[in-house]
Computed example of a mutant assay.
Amino acid sequence: MMPGQSTPGPKKRPNFSLRDINQSNPFNSFSKVVDLSGKLNFEGKAVLHSEGVDFGAGRKYNIKMEDFSTRCEIGRGQFGVVSKVYHNPTKVTMALKEIRLQLDELQLNQILMELNVLHEARSPYIVDFYGAFFIESCVYYCMEYMECGSLDSMFSFGCPEPVLARIAHAMVSGLKFLKDQFGVIHRDVKPTNVLVNSQGEVKLCDFGVSGKLNASLAKTRVGCENYMAPERIKSGASDQGYTVQSDIWSLGISLVEAATGKYPYPLNGRPTTSVFLIMQDIISGPAPSVDPARYSELCRDFITVCLHKDPSERPSYAQLLEHPFITKSQAADVDMAGWAQAALTHRASAA
């Protein structure tokens, strides 16, 4: 929108440049966040600029676009793209996530949440963070490059039970870390938000819709509906609140998908993509499971306890980590690197 033009209607959310700030509504509501010097300022919690990000606690990450070379796109989402880049000063290959800023307060909150989680979380089960910066209307996150991509890209190669158990362990450990250390619930647990590298390490990513737990409850209805727990879908759930047990449901659905190679809804093989029918199945239908001919009773029990319709019957993260399905795999020699490398080779040959 140029100066002097009327405010766009509610269905339009155009991209904007810095000179649009401080003009008529809705732009003036963002003047406290984006200033004309080219900085994105989150009320002292974090300041993004063209040469990095400064967090309120004093930690700084100096990184800028000019540091990168050999950029190629590896993924695309609703708000932007993810590219594979080479960081020349450190000689490290990174994933560069570009978010095109919209005039949307929810998106700004998501950016701040993801920045906070990424820079504070130091865990082998959370993707590493290298820095962030802001140029005109785009925010860039610099993260660990996970060369195998997201878990959903590994389905065609198959996911044997020992590997599935290690994936479950990594996901539960990452979610438990977020809850115990920061009081955060992920709220968007699904295979596309689980990354794998060539060493077979499994890490969580995408924390934009994560939320702080207030007395162990969260209320906002955000995240992918296909992986939402029944209690989050039911009418009035946003008023009643929900706990991390809702992420445990999403974990169970993700494991079924990893084991079977496909999303388990709608039930009974009905050929439909209707979100309404899928939501009905999640609320009223039986919980999905895996083939008993391929997966052990321990594996099936682990998935079953994750997918109890009543969230109070689902175990805690600590209890899941003590489940024999997990402890048995931790004691076994599982070649995660071999599985990851074989999946990469299979994907390359199928391309």
Rank of each mutant, 00 (worst) to 15 (best):
T327E: 03
R221T: 08
V290G: 12
E136G: 00
F177L: 01
A331H: 11
S173W: 05
H323Y: 02
S83G: 11
G44E: 13
A229N: 04
K176G: 04
P8V: 07
N15L: 05
L213E: 09
E161Q: 10
H169D: 15
K328H: 14
M65S: 15
R347E: 14
K328Q: 09
R19E: 12
D206A: 03
T220D: 13
S137R: 07
N193Y: 08
I111A: 00
E114Y: 03
E144G: 01
A331I: 06
K45L: 07
A287I: 06
N109R: 11
G149L: 03
A168F: 03
G4T: 05
A46C: 00
I111G: 00
K309E: 02
T243E: 13
P311W: 01
T192M: 10
C142E: 06
G211P: 12
E161N: 04
L101S: 03
N116S: 13
P264S: 15
P3G: 07
I278A: 02
C72K: 15
V202A: 08
R122E: 12
I326N: 07
L204I: 07
V305C: 01
A132W: 04
S37T: 07
E201N: 12
C306W: 12
I135D: 15
V163S: 06
M228K: 04
C299E: 04
P8K: 05
A218D: 12
A350V: 12
Q199C: 05
Q245W: 09
Y242D: 08
L320W: 02
M336H: 05
V275Y: 01
V92Y: 08
H49I: 10
K176D: 02
E136L: 00
Y86A: 01
Q240C: 07
F207I: 02
K11C: 12
F68Y: 15
Q199S: 09
P26R: 05
S250W: 11
R314V: 01
D20E: 12
I63C: 14
K84F: 01
L175M: 08
V34F: 15
M94N: 09
S289K: 07
F302I: 08
M113V: 00
G4R: 03
A132H: 08
E73G: 10
Y263H: 08
P3F: 11
M2F: 11
F16S: 05
S6R: 10
I185G: 15
E297I: 11
P271V: 06
